[in-house]
Lab assay of single mutants.
Amino acid sequence: GLPEGWEMRFTVDGIPYFVDHNRRTTTYIDPRTG
């Protein structure tokens, strides 16, 4: 799974992105792969 505090969501286009609730940021880069 994802690191603690992270969540995976999808855009309206079906593109996955990642929400970091710890820092309240979003990124398209998987936190597991950097």
Score class of each variant (00 low, 15 high):
Ile29Ser: 08
Gly1Val: 15
Asp13Tyr: 11
Thr26Ala: 12
Ile15Thr: 11
His21Phe: 08
Phe10His: 11
Glu7Phe: 04
Asp30Gly: 00
Arg9Asp: 07
Gly1Phe: 09
Thr11Ala: 07
Glu4Asn: 11
Met8Tyr: 03
Asn22Phe: 10
Glu7Leu: 04
Thr25Ala: 10
Thr26Arg: 10
Phe18Asn: 01
Thr26Pro: 04
Arg24Gly: 15
Pro16Glu: 06
Asp13Trp: 10
Val12Phe: 14
Ile15Ser: 05
Gly5Val: 04
Thr11Gly: 10
Arg23Thr: 15
Pro16Asn: 02
Pro16Ala: 10
Phe18Gly: 01
Tyr17Pro: 01
Tyr28Gly: 05
Phe10Pro: 01
Arg32Tyr: 04
Asp20Arg: 02
Leu2Phe: 09
Pro3Phe: 04
Tyr28His: 11
Trp6Phe: 07
Asn22Ser: 10
Arg32His: 06
Gly34Trp: 13
Glu4Gln: 12
Ile15Leu: 09
Arg32Ala: 08
Thr25Glu: 15
Asp30Met: 00
Asp13Glu: 14
Phe18Lys: 00
Pro3Arg: 05
His21Gln: 09
Thr11Met: 02
Tyr17Lys: 02
Glu7Asp: 05
Glu4Phe: 10
Thr27Met: 02
Thr11Asp: 15
Pro31Ile: 03
Asp30Gln: 00
Arg32Ile: 07
Asp30Val: 00
Trp6His: 01
Pro3Tyr: 04
Arg9Met: 09
Thr33Leu: 14
Arg23Phe: 11
Asp13Met: 11
Arg32Gly: 05
Gly34Pro: 14
Leu2Ser: 02
Asp20Gly: 00
Tyr28Pro: 08
Gly1Glu: 15
Ile15Glu: 06
Ile15Gly: 02
Glu4Val: 12
Thr25Met: 12
Asn22Met: 09
Thr26Met: 14
Glu7Trp: 02
Arg32Asp: 05
Leu2Thr: 02
Arg23Lys: 13
Gly5Leu: 07
Thr26Gly: 06
Ile15Met: 10
Gly34Asn: 12
Arg9Ile: 08
Leu2Lys: 03
Arg23Ala: 14
Gly5Ser: 05
Thr25Arg: 15
Asp30Thr: 00
Thr27Phe: 05
Arg23Ile: 09
Val19Asp: 01
Asp30Ala: 01
Gly5Tyr: 04
Asn22Ala: 11
Arg9Leu: 12
Val19Ile: 14
Pro3Val: 03
Pro16Tyr: 05
Phe18Ala: 00
Pro16Met: 10
Asn22Gly: 08
Gly14Tyr: 02
Glu7Asn: 02
Arg24Ala: 15
Asp20Ala: 01
Asp30Ser: 00
Arg23Asp: 13
Gly5Asn: 09
Ile29Gly: 06
Asp13Arg: 10
Tyr28Asp: 08
Thr33Phe: 11
Thr27Ser: 10
His21Glu: 08
Thr11Phe: 02
Phe10Val: 08
Tyr17Val: 10
Thr33Pro: 13
Leu2Gly: 03
Thr33Asp: 13
Val12Leu: 12
Arg32Gln: 04
Leu2Asp: 01
Thr26Ile: 15
Phe10Arg: 06
Thr25Trp: 14
Gly34Lys: 09
Asp13His: 13
His21Leu: 08
Pro31Arg: 00
Thr25Gln: 12
Gly14Ser: 06
His21Met: 09
Met8Ile: 10
Arg24Met: 15
Val19Phe: 13
Ile15Trp: 11
Glu4His: 12
Arg24Pro: 07
Gly34Leu: 15
Thr25Asp: 08
Arg32Asn: 05
Val12Met: 12
Pro3His: 03
Met8Ala: 09
Gly5Arg: 04
Ile29Gln: 13
Phe10Met: 10
His21Arg: 08
Val12His: 14
Met8Arg: 05
Gly1Asn: 11
Arg23Pro: 04
Gly34Phe: 13
Phe10Gln: 07
Pro31Tyr: 03
Ile15Ala: 08
Asp20Pro: 02
Asp20Glu: 04
Met8Gln: 10
Thr25Ile: 15
Phe18Trp: 15
Asn22Glu: 13
Asp30Trp: 01
Asn22Pro: 08
Ile29Ala: 09
Glu4Lys: 10
His21Pro: 03
His21Trp: 11
Val19Met: 08
Val19Pro: 01
Met8Lys: 06
Asp13Gly: 13
Gly5Phe: 05
Gly5Glu: 04
Thr11His: 05
Gly34Asp: 14
Thr26Asp: 08
Ile29His: 12
Ile29Pro: 03
Val12Tyr: 12
Asp30Phe: 01
Gly1Ile: 12
Glu7Ile: 07
Gly14Thr: 01
Pro31Val: 02
Pro31Cys: 11
Arg24Lys: 15
Glu7Met: 06
Leu2Gln: 01
Val12Ile: 13
Thr26Leu: 11
Trp6Lys: 01
Trp6Leu: 02
Tyr28Val: 08
His21Tyr: 10
Gly14Gln: 06
Pro3Ile: 05
